[in-house]
Amino acid sequence: MARSNEALRRPALEGRAASHAWVSVTPAAPASRLSLRTPADSVGAVSKALGFALPQKPKTSAQKNGRAALWLGPDEWLVIDESGSEISPALGKVKAFHSAVDVSHRNVGIVVSGPGAEATIAAGCPQDILLATFPVGACSRTVLGKIEIVLWRTGDTTFRVECWRSFSDYAFTFLSEAARDAAV
């Protein structure tokens, strides 16, 4: 519970925003995140605790009630919960082998939105992210300029970029500069 002397949370990109005619770049609100690892034979049990089935196909995600699981690897998911509820308690009861590690503060989310969002990302991401090959819901760990990111398409013209905290300044600056040129 919050106390009067509780430490103040200072998100890495506090107060930053960039907006251009075709695209906006905005820090995502703080969220609960888990790095979830589990072998195939535990996926069922973990899914049940999570409240929905973990996606099993590469480059796909699943979500329910403000909680999303992004497939990052054959036994790895990034769980992002923006509903304000804690994810770990439910998983704590799962007996099947898995690893759930809190990475809420490790990652920073940046939302890139608008008709120029795709072009903004394509300034630094070598993957084919056109809608046909990277549809809404698609997600992937990949590269943006000189850093690693997780890219998640949450809408036709909206992406969420997740990166590690100390790279968020680079990511945000890169995306803001690329957004200037997003009328491509």
Binding site: R10, A123, K146, R165, F167, D169, Y170, F174
Partner: peptide, 15 residues
């Protein structure tokens, strides 16, 4: 292209 100034290389800062 973008890799100049502060984007030449990521600068990592602690909290």
């Amino acid at each position: 292209n973008h890799a100049r100034g502060s984007l030449f290389d990521p600068t990592r800062r602690t909290p």
